[in-house]
Amino acid sequence: MTFDITITAFSARDLERDVDGLGALLHACVHAGASVGFVLPYSAADSEAFWTGSVRPNVEAGTRLLLVARRGDRIAGSVQLDYDTPPNQPHRAEVRKLLVHPDLRRQGIAQSLMAELERRAPALGRTLLTLDTRSGDKAEPLYAGLGYQTVGVIPDFCRDTADAGRLDSTTIMYKRL
C-alpha cells in the first residue's frame, strides 16, 4: 500500500536538477544488494555519474522514459523504459533498473512504478516489454505477480554485487500489453 506517492516522468533537465536524489537512491540500492549492474565498492560519485552519463543522454534523445516516485520531497524509487530498438522491433521496449529505496520497500512503490510504465508504453508504440532480473531475487516474484512470463534462465550471467567470485543467474521475462 502506498501513501502520498507521486510518479512523474523526468526530463533531462529534471534529472540534472535531482541527480543528488537519484544518486542517493541508486547508491542505497546497490549497497543493499540490488543486482542492477554495479558491484561494490560503489561510491556516490559512481552513482551520479551513471545518471548523468548513461541515463540523461538517452532521456534527452527521447529513447528512454524515466519515471520517478516521490514521497514528499524525497525520491522513493524509479524505473526506466528503454525504447531505443532496431527498426524491426518498434513494438518492443526493455524495462530497466526498477529501484525502490531500501527504507521504503514493501509499500507498493515498485508496483505503482510498473503500472505507470505499462500505462505509458502503448503511447510510445510499445506493446511487448522485456526485462531480466537476478534469479531468486525478491523482484522475480514481483514481476511474475504483475503478469510477466519467464522465458528462461541464463546461468553465470553476472558478478554478484558483493562477492566478486560468485556468478549469479538471470531470469529473462516478458509481458504483452
Results as ranks from 00 to 15, higher is better:
99 L>Y: 00
84 D>E: 10
58 N>Y: 05
77 G>H: 00
48 E>Q: 06
89 Q>W: 11
46 D>V: 11
42 Y>Q: 08
83 Y>L: 08
42 Y>A: 09
54 S>V: 11
54 S>D: 12
101 H>Y: 06
93 A>Y: 02
71 R>Q: 15
95 V>E: 06
102 P>I: 04
46 D>W: 06
96 R>S: 10
98 L>N: 04
72 G>K: 01
78 S>T: 10
43 S>Y: 10
82 D>K: 01
99 L>R: 00
67 L>T: 06
60 E>L: 14
46 D>Y: 07
101 H>M: 07
71 R>A: 14
77 G>S: 06
68 V>P: 00
79 V>H: 00
83 Y>V: 12
57 P>H: 01
100 V>H: 03
44 A>R: 02
104 L>D: 11
67 L>R: 01
62 G>M: 08
103 D>E: 14
54 S>L: 12
95 V>W: 01
92 R>K: 05
63 T>Y: 04
77 G>K: 03
79 V>E: 03
79 V>A: 03
57 P>F: 04
41 P>G: 00
53 G>T: 11
75 I>C: 06
51 W>Y: 12
76 A>I: 10
55 V>H: 00
56 R>C: 13
89 Q>H: 10
53 G>D: 07
73 D>K: 04
89 Q>K: 07
44 A>N: 06
79 V>I: 09
103 D>G: 08
75 I>H: 01
94 E>L: 07
88 N>E: 15
75 I>R: 00
51 W>K: 02
70 R>P: 11
64 R>W: 12
42 Y>F: 15
49 A>E: 07
48 E>H: 09
57 P>Q: 04
40 L>Y: 01
69 A>L: 11
82 D>C: 05
78 S>F: 09
41 P>N: 04
94 E>Y: 07
55 V>T: 05
70 R>D: 14
98 L>K: 04
78 S>L: 13
91 H>K: 02
